[in-house]
Amino acid sequence: MTRKSTARSDRGARAELVETCRRLHARDLIGAGEGNVSVRLGPDRFLVTPSGVNKGYLAPGALVVVDRTGAVVAGEGRASTELRMHLAAYAARPDVLAIVHAHPLTAVALTVAGVPPPDDLVPEAAVTLGPIGLAPFATPGTDELPAALAPLLPHHDVLLLARHGALALGRTLAEAFDRMETLERVARIALAARLAGSCEPLPAAAVDRVLAAAGRPPRRPR
């Protein structure tokens, strides 16, 4: 890859990442300095949001490039305090090229209430989210968090972090964003159903039929 094409790829990734952050903010999936987003630029280079800023108003030049150890190799800001979580996910999942961490209000509220992850209520939950991993509470910005996620990362594209937020992995930023947006929408369905009186999951056989219709394999037994 030439230096010119690398620069063009970097510019495109920056524009897409900034737009993803704006969409997260517009949909109330993050607020104030919450959340962080990253994209894999190459085997040892990752573009990540800076720490301590409102991600809804980022400029492409504010983004930071880090290596696999977390060292900043380009940019003047400080990388997200949740960078260790992102790097752990990339190390565990070579297929993942983009990560979105947000604080979806309803989905997080369900973890506070001790409600199971809403991954089997409606067809879009089964197809878009897959089985949702639920990580126990871990102190944000510390090594506790990647350690809590480590057993879950190989098996889940969407993870709920108890009393904290959610992590969506994707082959593209668009896919990771769609998973985060779908998580919150399905969580709202779960809350509304509970308020209406009952929130029953789809039977396992129905989930498998939905997955088959979408060309996906059946779920493994839990």
Rank of each mutant, 00 (worst) to 15 (best):
A174T: 14
P201M: 06
G75P: 06
D178Y: 11
R68V: 04
V64F: 00
E181I: 02
P50E: 05
L58H: 04
P123H: 07
L169R: 12
G31I: 02
A176C: 11
A205Q: 08
E19N: 06
A206D: 12
A92V: 12
V39L: 10
E34P: 00
R11Q: 15
L173Q: 03
H86L: 04
L121R: 11
T172L: 03
A89L: 01
H156R: 13
E144M: 09
L110V: 03
A79I: 00
M85A: 13
A13Y: 05
Y57Q: 11
P117D: 10
V64W: 04
E144H: 12
H103R: 08
T111V: 04
A214S: 07
A92F: 10
S9W: 11
Y57M: 11
E16S: 13
V65E: 13
G133D: 08
V108K: 10
R194Q: 15
V96T: 13
G165V: 02
L183D: 05
H155W: 13
M1Q: 13
E200T: 15
L121E: 07
G70A: 03
E200W: 05
S5N: 13
R220Q: 15
L87V: 05
A150N: 00
R23G: 06
A148P: 01
T49I: 03
R8V: 14
G35W: 02
R40A: 14
R27M: 07
E184I: 01
G56M: 01
R22F: 06
R27E: 13
V100S: 12
V39F: 08
N36S: 10
P218F: 01
C199S: 12
A74W: 11
P203I: 00
P118A: 10
L83N: 03
R14W: 05
D10V: 14
A91F: 06
Y90Q: 07
E19V: 02
I189P: 01
Y90E: 07
Y90H: 05
A212F: 01
L41I: 04
V39I: 13
T6C: 10
P151Y: 01
A26F: 04
L195E: 13
L97H: 15
G52R: 00
C199D: 12
L161Y: 11
R27G: 02
L29C: 02
L58R: 07
P201S: 09
E144W: 04
P123A: 08
A102V: 08
R194T: 09
M85G: 05
L161D: 07
D143S: 14
L161M: 15
T6D: 15
D119N: 10
A148V: 01
G215E: 03
A92Q: 09
P116M: 06
A196K: 04
C199H: 08
T139Y: 08
P118V: 03
A88Y: 09
P201C: 02
A91L: 10
A13P: 02
E124Q: 12
A125R: 00
